[in-house]
Design a protein around this nucleic acid. Structure first.
Length: 418
RNA sequence: GUGAGCGUAGCUCAGUCGGUAGAGCUCCGGAUUGUGAUUCCGGCGGUCGCGGGUUCAAACCCCGUCGUUCACCCCA
């Protein structure tokens, strides 16, 4: 029989780690609350068609990374590889995007069938926001500033770099892509193997190739910024001026494109050098075409998503996760006499209802074990229950150096209150 | 999908030239202590990832396979 274990690339989050997750998620919730974003939760499974139509048929995500399956009815379903498409679908379905503005945030697992490595898993968690119905650059700036607030609250703003670019309108992007393909086709033999393939499938992706020779070749290639339509150029200028005013530093990277087809105008990435090969912690941009493409009325939209595991890795390497002292036990309640087991449980229940904030653990065992366990769990107080000569239950309470003997249960309760 | 490194006790790891498996920690029990740091003794725990091959003999050498880590690719 084969050994049962978690599916490759899908990780258990153990109690030791979950406090860091809770810390991060609480910080994010505080930030989105102050920007007044509402949480939206959508199913993990959607129709495959949703992702085919939004992310783009020829992207790697759709072509080879989606978990697709048929249900018992023969419907073609997929585990969501990202969050945006589902939210647009839900927004259209419930009439939330029609002639109105919306600010949403979400979190949850996403699935991509890739080979796992540091910061890249088959089931991974994303946290993100999406804003609809606002066409101005101010909302692009808001999304970026929201990210910056979050980084600041985690104490990692200085370890991240904001990279910015504009892809222009869809038609400008199309014109540029033609010019780029023309230039690179004439020099195809100088391109690396992967980029040669991308020339046919997704030419813009060649721009952020890691290959030195390809990057050198691109130095003299047509530049995306020269093809921007006036409206997109002005939008971008407004965005950068707001960021300047807000004191957010950024790097304009004219070769930054995104892997998903739906972006237009603003795209951005927050990257770090603390994470090895997967340096992108957060990415986003504008996707004005998607709502219409999925059957709604043309609606402006911006959003971003961040990879929680990557962020956590970063917090770990930077050692900026505070100690969770509240996890420690307050009281280790014990008895040596096995005959007191039920009394022990009942006293613990009484104490818990009288003092709900107290963390209590009970144990019936030998003295050595009791004291060792109490120390290991970090309990600040230990109480030992005994039956007194007159038949009453009494407790001995240790706290720091102090020892108080023969407390009644009532006295024990009140002395724990302090 | 491609490449490289690594798989020995629950955990961290030794294991020489091929000679049939060990330590520390954890856990359990006992003695001592006798009330928040002990100390001492003992015990539980292994199909050396799995399957073949070479050999008198394989944890060790060879082949395959699975898992894992990192990188490519891709992306959060």
């Amino acid at each position: 029989m084969s050994k049962l274990q978690a599916i490759r690339g899908m990780n258990d989050i153990l109690p030791e780690q979950s406090s860091a997750w809770q810390y991060l998620e609480a910080k994010f919730q505080a930030v989105v609350a102050s920007y007044s974003y509402g949480e939206i939760r959508t199913p993990i499974v959607e129709s495959s068609e949703l992702f085919n139509r939004s992310i783009g048929e020829v992207t790697d995500i759709v072509e080879k990374e989606m978990y697709c399956f048929e249900d018992r009815n023969g419907e073609r379903l997929a585990l969501r590889p990202e969050g945006t498409a589902s939210i647009v679908r839900a927004g259209i379905e419930h009439g939330l995007l029609f002639n109105q503005t919306q600010r949403f945030w979400y979190r949850g697992p996403m699935f991509r069938y890739e080979k796992p490595q540091k910061g890249r898993y088959r089931q991974f968690q994303q946290i993100g926001v999406e804003a609809f119905g606002m066409a101005g650059a101010d909302i692009d700036a808001e999304v970026i500033l929201l990210c910056a607030s979050f980084w600041r609250s985690l104490g990692i703003l200085d370890s991240l770099t904001l990279e910015l670019n504009s892809l222009g309108s869809n038609s400008a992007r199309e014109q540029y892509q033609q010019a780029l393909v023309k230039y690179l086709s004439e020099r195809e033999e100088q391109l690396d193997e992967d980029s040669q393939k991308r020339l046919l499938t997704n030419p813009l992706r060649i721009l952020d190739s890691k290959e030195q020779s390809t990057q050198a070749l691109l130095d003299n290639a047509p530049s995306l910024s020269d093809y921007l339509d006036p409206e997109a150029a002005e939008h971008f200028a407004t965005l950068t001026s707001i960021l300047d005013a807000a004191g957010i530093s950024y790097k304009i990277n004219p070769r930054l494109v995104r892997g998903l087809d739906y972006y237009n105008k603003t795209v951005f990435e927050w990257t770090t050098d603390k994470l090895g090969a997967q340096g992108t912690v957060c990415a986003g941009g504008r996707y004005d075409g998607m709502v219409k493409q999925l059957g709604g009325k043309a609606t402006a939209a911006v959003g971003m998503a961040m990879g929680t595991e990557r962020l956590l890795l970063m917090l770990e390497t930077l050692k900026v996760i505070p100690e969770q002292v509240s996890q420690n036990l307050d009281l280790y309640l014990a008895a040596e006499d096995k005959g007191l087991q039920s009394e022990l449980v009942m006293v613990a229940e009484q104490l818990r209802s009288a003092l709900p904030s107290l963390r209590i653990r009970v144990h019936c065992s030998g003295l050595k074990n009791i004291l060792n366990k109490a120390r290991q769990t970090g309990a600040t107080k230990v109480a030992l229950l005994k039956r007194a000569a007159d038949g009453q239950l009494v407790a001995t309470l240790w706290h720091a150096e102090e020892v108080v003997r023969d407390l009644s249960i009532v006295e024990l309760t009140s002395s724990l209150q302090e």
